[in-house]
Design a binder for these strands. Structure first.
Lengths: 225, 225
DNA sequence: TAAACGATGTGACATATCTCACATTTAGTA
DNA sequence: TACTAAATGTGAGATATGTCACATCGTTTA
């Protein structure tokens, strides 16, 4: 299914810099695909022949570590998925899986490189994106290894509320096991800490539905361990 | 002190793509500075007005985490230092300190951006660098959080031998405390594990001098925890 | 050369969190 | 609706590793 990038309402910041000709070129080398919640968008170890752009929805980036699968990050549209693994290597170095229903654009890598060469603004926006992602990776890794589990779990909750859903009430799109391997702890510890937060009146939980009641406390826990 | 990039023997892969005119432009906006071991090259929290290129020597990239300073990575020349923090943000998001005597080029950021715009090959090489660094960050973080301390310390030794010094005998350029905060453990644990390796006949230590005796074992420890 | 400081070795103890075990609840499907 | 599988709650015990304490060794500096 071909896509029309000119009229697309979910353009990336880099695509915003393109003129009509280049957007047309992008449209011609671009396939929009829908994935249902839970399905893999691309998989570690396979060939990467396309640049992937997440048009709508949520996805998790995960990597097979030395012992177990680890979630690196949970991301929301709009953003590119796996530029490092597509451009930096021919084989995907990590996997991306939809955690809500998503719309994804697969852009032919040759066409993408063509755009990088032709239009310096486009390339610069991509560089900016890469730089910000790398900073984020470093910051996250430093937090994750230094903080104790309570702090990391508080972070995850705050991340969902502040950056992903932009609301203090939301449905967790992932299991507790997922949260565990996002912050590198066991499923059981996540459960224990979540019920602890509940008992302390910090948040309300009904199944997957979470409501943050005492955000100050949560932020304090995030800061102090 | 102005630099002549045309005759420079330590050109980056990206600079290799430049023609004489552009190299001249680079030379004119470029200052080469030497730092002695232990001195900061740039510091987290300060303004970043230059792109920094490590021409020779070793450096550590470190960041102030929620609890303590953490070494993110130890890098060797030739490579850029802190592209993400220079391009992605105006304030340095991390620090870089020399761990041997080093030579560093400070490139004016405006001139650097100019090169990015003018020459698509240059920009593409930079994008490649950024992508590879990001992949490396993710891989490292996943390893560090999953492996046990013994495995991480084995990794550091192997990294020095295989990638930094390219020899199984070398002088450790950092203290055990540094290694501790590179792999997120205490100074005492590093000491204990290092003497353990020594007792097991895996390596020989005389002061800072390390000689790997049984590399196979070390690799096994790196893999299995 | 001494003194002072930083880096390192090593023991004892505390503790966060993992693992295993099983109960219980929720969701998905015939 | 009932049955099955997956997700979650919770206890008990094991353990890797942090912290504190102090001794020793090497290196810089006055």
């Amino acid at each position: 299914m071909k896509n029309n990038c000119i009229t697309c309402a979910f353009k990336s910041k880099s695509a915003e810099t393109l003129d009509e000709d280049h957007l047309n070129h992008l449209s011609c080398n671009n396939a929009m695909v829908k994935f249902r919640k839970g399905n893999p968008i691309f998989t570690q170890g396979t060939f990467s022949t396309n640049v992937v752009y997440l048009r709508s929805g949520l996805a998790k980036i995960h990597i097979t570590g030395p012992y177990h699968e680890q979630i690196v990050r949970i991301v929301k549209a709009p953003r590119y998925l796996g530029l490092p693994t597509t451009i930096g290597d021919k084989i995907n170095q990590y996997s991306v899986t939809a955690i809500s229903d998503v719309e994804v654009c697969f852009i032919d890598i040759t066409a993408f490189r063509h755009l990088l060469k032709e239009t310096e603004h486009f390339a610069f926006e991509i560089i900016l994106d890469l730089c910000k992602d790398e900073l984020e990776s470093i910051r996250r890794c430093s937090n994750r290894t230094q903080k104790q589990t309570r702090g990391n779990i508080a972070d995850v909750i705050l991340e969902f509320a502040d950056h992903i859903y932009e609301s203090d009430t939301f449905n967790l799109p992932v299991s507790q096991a997922d949260i565990g391997n996002l912050v590198d702890t066991s499923r059981e510890s996540v459960s224990r800490i979540l019920t602890e937060f509940h008992k302390d009146g910090i948040l309300d939980m009904k199944g997957k539905k979470i409501e943050i009641i005492n955000k100050k406390s949560l932020q304090l826990i995030s800061q102090n361990g």
